[in-house]
Design a protein around this nucleic acid. Sequence first.
DNA 1: TCCCTCCGTCGGGCT
DNA 2: GACGGAGGGA
Length: 664
Amino acid sequence: MKRFILQQDSGPRHDASYRIAYAELLNEQQYDAVMHERGPALVIAGAGTGKTRTLVYRVARLVEDGVPPDQILLLTFTRRAAKEMLDKASGVLDERCARVRGGTFHQYCNQLLHTHARHIGYPNTFTLLDQSDAADAIHLARGPLAAQLRGKRFPQKHTLLSIFSAAVNRQLPIYEIIASGYPQFLSHHDAIEEVQKRYSDYKSENAVMDFDDLLVKTRTLLLENEQIRQKIVAVNRFVMVDEYQDTNTLQAELAELFSSEHYNIMAVGDDAQSIYAFRGADFRNILTFPGRFSGCRVIRLDENYRSVQPILDLANTLINKASNKFEKQLFSRKEGGDLPGLVKAPCERYQSRFVTQMLLQLREQEVPLGDIAILFRNGRDSYDLEWELNKKNIPFQKFGGQKFSEAAHIRDILAHIKIIVNRDDQIAWNRVLLLLEGIGPKTAGELISWLRRNKSRNFMEYGLASRSYRKQLERLSILLAEISANRDNPASAVDAAIAYYKPLCAKHFDDHPKRIKDLDAFAGLAGSYKTLDQLLQELTLEPLDASAMETERSVKDENPLVLSTIHSAKGLEWNTVFVIQCLDGIIPSGYSVDDPDAMDEELRLLYVACTRARERLFVTYPVTKESSFGEYFSNPSRFLSDIPEMVLESWLIEEEPSAKQLNP
DNA sequence: TCCCTCCGTCGGGCT
DNA sequence: GACGGAGGGA
């Protein structure tokens, strides 16, 4: 047989032959990154320096140069980010860019494993455990040990999950994770390892994987199957990794593996914006990238195009307080701009009223609602404001915090679907059976082991002529048959599950009217998936935000106001940003105060929040805070103390004289 | 065996 | 505010 070797293009063409005038549209460093041809490169891009723009144009440039779009892999932090970038690239060039493969590490790994998992002893049809499923599985795995541990303080299922996850993502032994993060549980070290082993066994016996497994098993797949590795990796002619500062050791290894055939990897990130240490990221990872890839080029983007200078002055002041110094000094050529405001409110109600009135005032001044964001540390820090916004009928969309698909009633529906997709899913069976009256943990356990022994879903073969729950199990069997018949028709399957579940929901929850409204909203959404398998995978990898349903209705006329945790606001920008609840104990979090590294991360978090703003920035805090013990005085974030007035201007809130009393 | 209530403990950010 | 263990009535 003869071989014909196709040669690769030697390098970027002369600018004139491109459809896009890159040199005119980009600054020198951005252009450099966009035109970078082969070999590894690291782009260090400070906040607002056009990182997204650079990636978008690089994708377009590669496609213009004739690289087949499906040979480009763009790994981003959320699927939303990938989609946004590829849409933009399609906009500046053409539709080909939409065929570039993009998504998160977890999504990409999930795809690979659903094609190749059998090479590592898993069926390709494995299903995913989300965070709550994983916690439930751990609870189950812990079961047999519970008796021995009676009366002793043992970590809860969620704590166990974070210990296991930290060990995986930091590539450290369990013992070290406990010693450094959970010293109170050191005496249980052996039992914790035992639980981990049982949890692992559970996962392989039931053909399920958790988030961490997606990464770990993909690494195993690629390292232990040379032919598979070559096949998978040969397609990745160009690999780009966004937000590299928030990848952990394991992801860094994967990035290396994914590009191990062509060695064309470009990492983009900013060490000063690393905010995912709790997931095993270390801001130093980005700095060691050039050491990992020999011949790596380093390109720095340092001119900020986003914010007015006063906002950058505050950001610079903040980041300089870090104990680990960052060599960062953001500068802008955007003229003017007001000083950021530090707004002291007498209490949380005033804070909410201030934010609401100020944003209405801004809307009068032609700042669209959708170009304003309210940012906060924890998902619950916005409850009071949400109440105020609802009262004033202001549409908003919330990102972060409690996920819609993790609410108990939605998980109940999903459990019925899971047992069809994976009949071995004990967690789902357990959930489904416990909903029935007269069935408790004991009976559910017996039914499940019977089902497993008999490889059956048909309870009628189980001797239950005289049982009180017989009728209910008959109804369940009918439902399961119906879901099963609609595997390729999620809308019908979900409708059937909801019709069956509504009476149960009413019985179990006092607030069922609200929950039933959610269920109806969910039914409307199910139709957008092709199969039940796809529905489960996508909801697990990218859970719906709690307010997703609200938005469906309000998004018609005006883009809604954005409420977001700072973590979920990563990479985005708005005309005006309010950072609320800037209290000591919240930001920095009370859990971090004893650890200098953790404190630096909290500081970076505030830095990220502030650098989201283009024109206007308000940092607000209430002086008193309510808790279950009553009202108490709270202090503003320690990061805001001794910042000069010329950098951060103090605002006081006063009640209009004619107003008689505060709104209740 | 189920199911309700009471109480101490823990707690976050995300895929 | 949610979980998990304990205790009591059905």
